[in-house]
Amino acid sequence: MADNNLVQVLVVEDEQEIRELMALHLLRQGFKVTECTSAEEAMNEVAKTHYSVFVLDWMLPGLSGVELVERIRTKNKTAGVLMVTAKTEPQDIVLGLEKGADDYLTKPFNPAVFVARVKALARRTQSEEAAPGKPEDEIQVNGLRVNFKSYEVSYNNEPLHLTPSEFKLLGALVQNRGVVLTREQLIENIQGEGINVVGRTIDTHVFGLRKKLGEWGDRIETIRGVGYRVKMDSV
């Protein structure tokens, strides 16, 4: 569970009412929040303070939120980035994710969902910052155990037999739990010697994986028109 008192969040939103609403809900959860109205103002903040989570509007005066994501990523590889946008077309959402955002939320949004998304990113970011650059040999999530050294997977101590593609797919999802991965990102994770994945065949792999995982497979969310995500537990 993340200690929100240690998490610095930068909210970049030019509409005052929305920005203050976001900040209020995050402050109530114990986050340290800084507010900015433009990408330029945000970059000044990034230059002097380390932020664990960024909440970015897409349509900002001057540089857009998508352009800001790219600039943030040159300085901070581990921060969680949540795009909050009125753009709802799948191609727009995919673009934001491919530029470096971890998750997205469309306007108007439910404040409880907004806070849950930020918490999920904060947990993941704190975990990565605690052991920078050190990949986990084994991950356990709600009874599921994935061992990246032995390539073994079990659920409630019962071994599961996955294909190489299914193992790589599950590995990518649990390593990035709480984060939306596009089909293109998942294809990149799966491609390799003897494995060729094209187009929407990723959906077929997810279907097979869910069947083998049984009830745990319900944790793999379909983000329509975009990709997939493993749900994080609420706190």
Rank of each mutant, 00 (worst) to 15 (best):
R73E: 10
R73A: 14
T78R: 09
A79F: 02
G80V: 03
L82D: 07
T88M: 00
P90L: 06
Q91M: 07
L95V: 00
L97R: 05
E98H: 11
K99M: 01
D103N: 03
Y104V: 11
L105H: 07
L105P: 00
K107R: 13
F109M: 10
V113M: 05
V115N: 12
V115L: 08
L121S: 06
A122W: 07
E128L: 15
E128D: 13
E129K: 13
A130E: 15
A131E: 15
K134C: 01
Q140S: 15
V141L: 14
V141N: 10
G143N: 11
G143T: 08
L144A: 12
V146H: 04
S150A: 15
V153F: 10
N157F: 07
N157Q: 14
E158D: 13
P159S: 11
L160H: 08
H161V: 00
L162G: 15
E166A: 10
K168D: 09
L169P: 06
L170A: 04
N176D: 06
G178D: 02
V180E: 02
V180M: 00
L181Y: 03
L181T: 06
R183I: 09
R183W: 02
E184P: 06
E184A: 14
Q185N: 03
L186V: 12
I190P: 02
G192L: 01
E193Y: 00
G194K: 01
I195H: 13
V198Q: 03
V198K: 05
R200C: 01
